[in-house]
Simulated assay, not measured.
Amino acid sequence: MFSIGDFAALGRVSVRMLRHYDAIGLLRPAATDPVSGYRYYRADQLRRLNRIIALKDLGLTLAQVADILDNKVTVDELHGMLRLRRAQLEEQLSADAARLAGIEARLRMIEQEGHMSTEDVVLKRIPQARVAELSAVAASYEGPDIGPVIGPLYQEMWRRLKQTGATVTGSPIAYYVPEPGADGDGQEVRVHAAVEVAANTPAGDGTLDILDLPGIQSAATIVHRGPMDEAFRSMQILARWIDDNGYTPVGYAREVCLEFDPENPVNWVHELQLGVARP
C-alpha cells in the first residue's frame, strides 16, 4: 500500500484534497494506522480517484460525483446532467467570446485615440416623428444587458404592426431613459424600440404605444457602421466634437437604424443622434 503522500503524487492531487475526500466519504483510505492516524491507499483506488477528477473537471459537484460513483444515478440521469453541463459551458463560451470581442474593440479604441477625426459629425435639426413603440427595462446600459431586451422588443413590435395594419414610414429608432430612481451608475434603464409610422396613425387600442417623438432642434449626429456593441467608438468621436465646439449634451442619444443585416452585425449602419446646446 501507499502512504497518503505517495498516493497523492501518483494521482496528481494534493494531500489536502485526499483528506477532504476522506472526510466527506468520497474516497476512504484502504487502511488507517490506529496509533498515528496515517492513511494508506491501494493501487486499485487510483481508478476511483481518476473518475472523481474526471467528473469534477466536467463541473459536477462532489455530491453529484459521489452519486454517480456509487451507482445512485441512472444512465439517463447521467446523460441529462452532462447535457446540462454542456449547455452551461456553451453559454459560458459564448459570453466569453463576446467579452473578448469587447476587449479587442476597446484596445483598438485606445490605439486610435488621438487619431480619430471628428469631420464626420454633422449638426442638424431632427423633426418630430410619429412612432409606434414598445419598451421594457434592462438591468443597465451595458451592451450585454441591452441586447437581450431590445431584440425581442423589435420582434414583438413587427408582429403587432402587422396586426394593426399601421403604415411604417421611416427607420427604426431606439432610445434609452433611466428608470425612476436610477443614478446613472449602471442602474436600470427603460429601452424604447420604436419605428416611424404615418403621421395620422391613431393612438389605437394599446397593442402598441403610438406617440409623437419630440424633435431635436440641434443634434450632433454621426453614422456608425458595425455592431452596436462597438458604438462607443462613434460616441467618443461625437463627445470630442461636442467638447471641441463648445456644446453640452441635452437629453439622451437616439439610434436610428439605416441598414440592418440579421446575418452579420458588421454590415449594420446606424445614425447616432444627440441633442446639444450652448451652455
Rank of each mutant, 00 (worst) to 15 (best):
I126Y: 11
I173P: 01
D243Q: 15
T248Q: 14
L161I: 12
I103W: 06
A66Y: 04
T164Y: 11
P227W: 00
V131K: 04
L60C: 04
P265I: 01
I222V: 14
R12D: 12
R12C: 09
A31W: 11
F7A: 01
H224P: 05
E90F: 02
L208W: 11
L107M: 12
R42V: 04
D185W: 06
Y41A: 01
L238Q: 06
L46R: 09
L18N: 03
V276F: 01
Q155N: 14
G165T: 07
D44W: 05
Y154C: 14
A136T: 06
V149N: 13
D67L: 13
L10M: 08
D76E: 15
G215R: 08
P127V: 07
F232A: 13
P265H: 02
L272M: 10
P29V: 00
K72E: 13
T74R: 11
R12Q: 15
Y247N: 14
T221H: 13
A101Y: 10
R47G: 01
Q112A: 14
S140P: 10
G5V: 05
V223D: 07
K72Q: 14
S171Y: 06
G184A: 14
S117Q: 12
G206K: 12
M116E: 14
T61I: 01
Q45F: 02
R28N: 15
R108I: 11
H115V: 05
Q217Y: 00
D261Y: 07
Y175H: 13
T164K: 02
D6E: 15
K124P: 02
G204F: 08
E230H: 12
E196A: 15
E271P: 09
D120N: 10
F260G: 02
D57I: 01
T201H: 05
V269G: 12
G59T: 03
D145G: 03
V13K: 01
G11L: 07
L107I: 14
R51Y: 08
D76F: 08
Q273A: 05
A193F: 04
D185H: 12
M228G: 06
A63W: 02
E271D: 13
Y21S: 01
P227T: 02
P202A: 15
T169R: 15
V35Q: 15
D243M: 10
L161K: 05
V223G: 00
L18M: 12
V65D: 01
T167D: 10
A87C: 06
G151C: 11
R16Y: 03
A193E: 06
Q236W: 13
R86A: 06
